[in-house]
Design a binder for these strands. Structure first.
Lengths: 150, 150
DNA sequence: GTATCTGCAAATCCTTTGCAAGTCA
DNA sequence: TGACTTGCAAAGGATTTGCAGATAC
């Protein structure tokens, strides 16, 4: 049990080829403290391996998503961000006034999840979207204009 | 006080021109039982008035958003949907298994809103995004594949 | 050796923009 | 009349795809 990455191990186990591109893309995702976009993954990989193409990044992300190893999160920027399944979960409060993202821990929303499950039999996957609104600072500033999207 | 549409009245009051395009775009939005996309608005308007251009739809939406008369909602489809401010509010549970959208009333999430406000001083605007997850049926079906997005 | 992957280039989808012509007030 | 609106066409950004050559196993 000492693989560089459990994801890499699992990819290999499932019969997928461990190409240098895939390894580098995985490293970028796993190494990202935050959530990373396809473009950012591409930039990181291309810095060491200029030959890669961004379509390979998208194809690899597609594969990893399909295998449940990487998750998407839509923070309303008009682009999707990705994070490794292994990197732990939290929720995102996205301020539409200043674009700041506040992280809150998973437990905060567990009661909501329970209510939706109980009353609507709906299993909410709250980790993969941002919750939009206004942070404290922006609320004070005359309600904050809120032109954060796209 | 008997305008066809309160939005139209307000647009005129603010000094914006009531062009036929704007009136028809407004009619499409207000007439939509559900949430409508720019493309759908365009199709509806173009049916009666083939001359319109979709850029006019986007520009009108931009204006109405700015004036707070129309709201966006991102249901994670890779496109934004719109609804009239006057059409009442509710929340959206979007099933990633079958793409179904379940509407829930605003009160259901008010406690969440209060918690976020109290603990994070964050004023969440929950009405403008969908909450993703799996509906009852799709949960039963072996967890449902969940390839709903884009 | 060969099925799987990749790079490349072009296409797609949604949305935005510049500009000259049209039109509401 | 004249500022505000529109149509048109072209650009924009994110993502996807077809295909032929490259490569992991």
């Amino acid at each position: 049990m000492h693989e560089k990455s459990s994801i890499i191990g699992r990819l290999g186990d499932k019969g997928y080829r461990l190409t240098p591109q895939r390894l580098m893309i995985l490293a970028a995702i796993e190494g990202s403290a935050d959530h990373i976009s396809a473009e950012e993954i591409y930039a990181q990989v291309a810095a060491k391996y200029p030959h890669v193409n961004i379509s390979t990044v998208y194809r690899t992300l597609e594969l990893l998503k399909r295998l449940g190893m990487v998750f998407e999160i839509d923070l309303g920027e008009g682009r999707i961000r990705y994070h490794a399944e292994s990197s732990g979960h939290h929720h995102h409060l996205v301020c539409q006034g200043c674009n700041r993202v506040v992280y809150i821990d998973e437990a905060t929303l567990s009661s909501l999840r329970n209510i939706l499950l109980r009353d609507y039999a709906f299993a909410a996957e709250l980790r993969h979207v941002g919750i939009f609104g206004l942070c404290n600072d922006c609320r004070k500033k005359s309600g904050g204009k809120g032109n954060a999207r796209r």
